[in-house]
Design a protein around this nucleic acid. Structure first.
Lengths: 154, 154
DNA sequence: TTTGAAATCAGTAGCAT
DNA sequence: ATGCTACTGATTTCAAA
């Protein structure tokens, strides 16, 4: 997109895996000065390539023992925006996509247990006007969880 | 799980959204000293509540214009581990879950364009022994992308 | 893009609650 | 057991080249 070179990619590769690494270490690994890293990172933020940072929290530690994907079918696709507005109010929904395929939309939902999940499905999601059906895909085991790959060439 | 109190939650709430915020600011917001934050964060790391950190990169900036979920049906559920091992080698696959519902497993895949996606599906994923069918749910728009909610009580 | 100085911040230890 | 103060060294920021 906007002239991202190999140094940028190398920096992204490192800091996307560890947000707290001192920039001088990044600099050493990349073979440039510390200031170069600062300037590049700032530029990547300004360009919108970097959209934030955060510590990763283990869901189980917070009592979220159930991770599920919920496919939602809508009466009409055009109701999508209104439904999303409602879904925004449910904190347990961490992702929502408008999708091709068997569902109108696909959401990712964390719940504490089956009872909590049941409550979210029956009393929250299925109550939203326009939602005609939901299908629940419970994740019994998450086997892969990576960051997006930083491509070597562009 | 292991005695996470409200101060812990307040800290997690802040640093899960911003890994680079100075701990002195976290301390100010929580109304405790910096050292307390250090101790708490270190403890949360030791307990496995915090599992890492990272900068968030905008997929589009790296040329990934297509985000998809791919449901995979296996000949036998018991082949799951072997299939996961193969999927590990495909960098574009960033998530993989063993699921209840219509598929044996659900994966999240980033691709540059439809041609790239086609290649991943036909030449990589469907070639894996045990995979009998795939169904592709292309995300036309991602409307919600949050961190996991930090529960107020627990 | 680099360097170096000034300002800010992190991490530690010992004390107090 | 947890938080606080104070200290030391590391890191970030910002100048000029």
């Amino acid at each position: 997109m906007e002239k991202i070179d190999n140094l940028d990619r190398q920096i992204l590769e490192i800091i996307s895996q560890n947000a707290r690494i001192p920039f001088k270490d990044v600099a050493a690994e990349c073979g440039v000065s510390r200031a170069a890293i600062h300037q590049r990172v700032q530029r990547l933020i300004d360009l919108g390539v970097i959209v934030g940072s955060g510590y990763h929290v283990n869901p189980k530690s917070l009592g979220y023992r159930t991770c599920t994907y919920v496919g939602i079918k809508l009466e009409k696709g055009s109701m999508y925006k209104a439904v999303v507005a409602e879904l925004q109010n449910i904190p347990e929904i961490v992702e929502c996509h408008f999708t091709t395929g068997p569902y109108t939309m696909l959401t990712k939902v964390y719940a504490c247990d089956n009872e909590h999940l049941m409550d979210l499905l029956n009393n929250r999601m299925q109550e939203i006007p326009g939602v005609v059906a939901t299908e629940t895909l419970i994740s019994l085991e998450q086997s892969i969880k990576k960051e997006i790959p930083i491509r070597a060439d562009k």
